[in-house]
């Protein structure tokens, strides 16, 4: 199953913020059931895209060497998303240290706010993982590889050095 809920990164300012987009097509499976005759993107999937945008922003700080795991989220929903729309995910890095990170993000369609969330990520090291796990760097791998390369291509040249506020 594919579980990438971002189509493309638009902007990546390392250690600061990121913007990504997700296009909604009626051909996506979930619209058939959610809901029959009235297609609405399930709100948790909107948050998944937002969390993936934030997770990649956080992961980039350590060049994706650390596993970044979604640990906690507080969200508010304001509007629905429908086929034919493009969702823009914008996340800002609030805090970062060895143990984890906190980001704040919004999902919008044009300038209409769909959802906003504060998201906590934990850095999970090999010593915290089950011994039988095949790949200890299991987060930023597989189907995400292409997206990570694409994100690299939109790094904003104006902010190539991370801000001092987030050094740990």
């Amino acid at each position: 199953m594919r579980w990438t809920w971002i189509d493309r990164f638009v902007r990546l300012e390392p250690g600061r913020r990121a913007t990504a987009v997700k296009n909604l097509s009626w051909a996506e499976d979930y619209f058939a059931d959610h809901f029959p005759g009235y297609p609405v993107m399930p709100a948790p999937l909107i948050l998944e895209g937002l969390a993936q945008t934030g997770g990649i922003l956080v992961g980039h700080v350590h060049q994706y060497r650390k596993n970044v795991i979604l640990a906690k989220m507080t969200a508010r929903f304001h509007a629905e998303a429908h086929p034919g729309q493009q969702i823009t995910y914008t996340v800002e890095l609030l805090d970062l240290n060895e143990a984890g990170a906190r980001v704040r993000g919004t999902a919008t369609v044009h300038d209409k706010l769909l959802a906003e969330a504060d998201i906590m990520f934990a850095h999970v090291g090999p010593e915290q993982l089950p011994a039988e796990l095949a790949d200890p760097q299991f987060v930023f791998s597989g189907e995400l590889a292409h997206l990570l390369r694409q994100a690299e291509s939109v790094i904003s040249a104006s902010s190539s050095s991370p801000p001092s506020a987030v050094t740990s």
């Binding site: 640990a71 906690k72 609030l94 805090d95 240290n97 143990a99 984890g100 906190r102 906590m120 934990a122």
Partner: peptide, 20 residues
Amino acid sequence: IDFLDIVFRLEKQFGLRIPR
């Protein structure tokens, strides 16, 4: 995870670096 969240928020509010 809430302990980390609390530490982050305290650091911002009080302008301190707080080693967990």
